[in-house]
Amino acid sequence: MAFSNFNLQMLNLWIGLCRAEAGLPTIIRDLGYKPEWIELGFPNSQKHVVKPELIISSIIQQHSILFEWKEGNNTDNDQLKRYSEITSMDIKAFLSSAVTDFHDICIIGLSSNESRILIGINQGQYTFPVLLVDDDGLELKLNSFCIPELNDAFSPKMYISQALIPTQLIPFDINSKDWEIAERIIVQVITYIFNNKTFFTVDEVLKDSAPIWHSFCSPQEKKHIRTIAIQVIELASQNEFQGYFQRNKVRPSINQSPTWDIICTPYKMPLDKRSKEYHKLKSLFANFLEELKTNGNKTRQLSYLIDY
């Protein structure tokens, strides 16, 4: 499975479509769309805050799209009403005036929730274009975009293989599973080991492994991801990687960030021994990920409560 949650999948997909990454249709890029803002909160004309998941815009089309996507089967009528109150003036504050004359609020949901989503849109008599996602791609199910080429792109369907959606632009978010986060942060820790660092902090790891998460999450969301990261690193240090790094409970946390000491590094070994060490670390990492994916934390208990 490439993604544990729909939000992460859609963010990576739409940024990838704007970049025309290999394997994806090029039409969105060809129409000139570029990703602008991720989870930008702003007031609408009625001073109610809206926070689209993503905003993209095209100078060529003089048009912007504000996306709201939902994995669940219910639409939030209050939220839809707020979106309907957005005017060009509201978005001029943070977008070029060349792209604010026309805009669309695009609702994206799973095709398995089609009926409930469409009911919600129709009941409110909203004119938002609705895209539904299934294993084959995206289909325009209701209403239409201001730009005819966009309507054509999704009718009957924009075919996209789920397996080809980029995964590395935004590798994890608030809803990610621990193995998703581990896949990135443990490799970052291993990078520190190869670089002969003597210690690292959890905040350093998170910032280096996925700078984006640090910038758009709320303080509460950051705390949640941080907690998972600490647990994952601690689990690694007590199991597969116990010969490589260990929690330093004596050193005061640097900027209140838990710290681990690196106790073994291939860099200090003779060249011929380094190669064996690289292979060993690969096996350990693969094993650690597999354990997390299949058993999670259930069979492995942390030997002490984490004090952070």
């Binding site: 602008e36 590395q168 632009l169 700078p211 758009f216």
Partner: peptide, 18 residues
């Protein structure tokens, strides 16, 4: 791949090499 952040408003720069 880089993050551009202005007052907690975020966009992402860079792209994959294909």
């Amino acid at each position: 791949i880089k993050v551009n952040s202005i007052n907690e408003n975020v966009n992402i720069g860079g792209k994959a090499l294909n």
